[in-house]
């Protein structure tokens, strides 16, 4: 599998992140392996993060992201807001984080933008 645009691949490799390109039927995405979550906030320290790359990416923006295992906030032992729905991918039930941002600048934004958004979402989740 080799569907990741070259600039995204370069970025992930340069950052030294472990990732794999995955497909389920016609849906494509990348999984960031054992991504470290903000410390002291979740009941898991690391999780795989799935980012679906829609057809037409990077001209069209990605939307939402998914965690496995599911992460609960330590405070109140509950799922963060809008992160309690399951999404099925490769016969696994992922925790869907419904985070939306349709702002997307062609030629400027890429997987690095999505990563920032994810890091931010994990940081501010309540």
């Amino acid at each position: 599998m080799n569907f990741l645009p070259s600039n995204d691949r370069k970025y992930l490799e340069n950052r030294g992140l472990r990732f794999s390109e995955v497909e389920d039927g016609k849906q494509k995405g990348i999984i960031l392996r054992e991504f470290r979550l903000p410390s002291g906030r979740y009941d898991v320290q690391k999780a795989d993060i799935l980012i679906l790359l829609p057809s037409g990416y990077p001209d069209v923006p990605p939307d939402m992201f998914y965690l496995l295992p599911w992460a609960k906030l330590l405070e109140g032992t509950k799922y963060p807001k809008a992160a309690n729905q399951a999404f099925s991918f490769k016969s696994q039930k992922w925790q869907r984080w419904s985070r939306h941002n349709s702002q997307w600048r062609p030629g400027v934004d890429g997987i690095w933008t999505m990563l920032k958004r994810i890091e931010n979402a994990l940081e501010v989740a309540a």
Partner: peptide, 11 residues
Amino acid sequence: PIMARDEALKR
């Protein structure tokens, strides 16, 4: 681009 994404998801 958002409509392109929705079309792709539908398919």
